[in-house]
Design a protein around this nucleic acid. Sequence first.
DNA 1: CTATAGATGCCCT
DNA 2: GGGCATCTATAGC
Length: 205
Amino acid sequence: MDRGFFDRDVLEVAPLLLNKLLLKRGPGPGPDLLGRIVEVEAYRGSDDPASHAYRGPTARNAVMFGPPGRLYTYFTYGMHWCANIVTGPEGTAEAVLLRALAPVAGLEAIRRARPAARRDRDLLSGPARLCQGLGIDGGHNGADLVTGDRGLQLLDDGVPPPPVPEVSGRVGIRLATDRPWRWWVPDNPHVSPGRPRPPGPAPEG
DNA sequence: CTATAGATGCCCT
DNA sequence: GGGCATCTATAGC
């Protein structure tokens, strides 16, 4: 894919990422793993209190401030990795959280990487699940998805994004729950079971 | 299907 | 020390 695709506002890019392919190669002799993006969320650092970049650059969020088309991975809840695609020009801090993928290739290897998943629909249906299933972690922070320099690449096989994607508030956050910045492919069984918190002011006193 | 509790470690104040 | 862009097992319909 072209770098320019990612060099736009995150609210424009996020829904267009639906139905794109994420390819994971190696390292080692393992088979290529492939998944189709079916659920995403937008985080816009400059004016988004829920974004890791809201309070300015730190060691953790540095990749978000870098050039578009790279992967931002972070560790959370003491045990989980999550992956984002950086958008917008260098200097801004926008990113699209990958929330769910539909497995396309490498199913056997993905099943081995996700022993807790009882059904195939649970393999990559969550931001931490998809990282576990594809073997994505901190070693991939900053990987370039355009060149595939670290075995991770974003591909377009011609399947267009849904003309009218489903929309809701974002999942698992406390702040800015009213922003409809989560998109998914309608009726796709691999979308995560997460539900947004009811909108309202942040708890206070 | 829904609801709940517990795991577990890094980041930032 | 508080809080987390989560997941899993278990309990109960």
